[in-house]
């Protein structure tokens, strides 16, 4: 394990000397992603272990419904489509879509149109929600500092992402992130991070990726955790849940020597 890490570090150090990427590039694009992922995973584990009670959406619909009814679905459905778009754009290599007979241009047009629309929905919804949070008294007083930080980072990520897409398409006729950002993203998960790929990426894309890593890092400690417990199981479970009182006995470990014999 340790030797693998050392090997990786050596390889990256060589890359820093030989390739175009500097030390800071290595830190940003080969170290930071793993830090963010580690915090994301371990943070959720910790939160689930120690703060199940705090694991909730912290909904404020009770206080205000008029704005929420528009803003919340707009944001959530928007962000779900954006998420799907990212999965498609980052995880599916060029070769696969081309093999499926989709030309680069067609893919690009579809992705930009759908992505911009979904991004605008997300941003509009987020704007409505933030406006609501600030102006509706009870909702604002139910807002914690943690929430404010989360909203700031979330807005930053969405704005940067949308800005990168719009700017690239307005100014330069489009930027093919599937040649650079996507392979880099996959390289992180293949445990062979290649910071060189990110060296020449436009600044907005790079900032978007960095802010996303920041969001991943704070994610487990905010109300965003509710995403991981999206109730998909509801579609299949029986309507009425029966539970035995005995199930709760695990709450208290028996004293040594008094364990139950199965």
């Amino acid at each position: 394990m340790i030797s693998v890490v050392i090997g990786q570090v050596r390889r990256l150090a060589d890359a820093a000397e030989g390739g175009r990427a500097g030390v800071e590039d290595v830190l940003l694009w080969a170290v930071l992603p793993y830090v963010a992922i580690a915090v994301f995973v371990l943070g959720h584990y910790w939160r689930y272990r120690y703060d199940k009670f705090g694991w909730t959406t912290r909904s404020s619909q009770l206080h205000e419904n008029r704005l929420l009814r528009i803003g919340s679905p707009l944001f959530h459905f928007g962000v779900l489509i954006v998420l799907l778009g990212h999965v498609g754009g980052l995880l599916v290599p060029n070769a696969w879509t081309e093999a499926a007979g989709i030309s680069e241009h067609a893919y690009h047009v579809a992705a930009v149109t759908l992505g911009t629309a979904a991004g605008l929905c997300t941003l509009t919804g987020l704007a409505i929600l933030i406006y609501r949070r600030r102006t509706v008294g009870p909702v604002f007083s139910a807002t914690t500092r943690n929430d404010k930080l989360m909203y700031a980072v979330l807005t930053l990520v969405v704005v940067l992402g949308l800005a990168a897409t719009v700017a690239a398409n307005l100014a330069g006729g489009g930027y093919d992130y599937r040649e650079t950002v996507s392979p880099w993203f996959r390289s992180v998960f293949l445990l062979r991070p290649d910071p060189d790929l990110m060296a020449d990426v436009p600044i907005l894309f790079r900032l978007h990726a960095l802010s996303a890593m920041l969001l991943l890092g704070i994610w487990p400690f905010t109300r965003l955790v509710h995403m991981l417990t999206a109730p998909i199981g509801y579609l299949t479970r029986p309507y009425i849940v029966y539970r035995s009182r005995d199930a709760r006995l695990g709450a208290r470990a028996p004293r040594r020597g008094w364990e139950r014999i199965p």
């Binding site: 417990t229 109730p231 509801y234 479970r237 309507y239 849940v241 029966y242 539970r243 009182r245």
Partner: peptide, 13 residues
């Protein structure tokens, strides 16, 4: 209980 998406509401047996 039937409406709870998380299955958090339960009836004790």
């Amino acid at each position: 209980a039937a409406s709870c998406p998380s299955g958090a509401i339960y009836k004790r047996t």
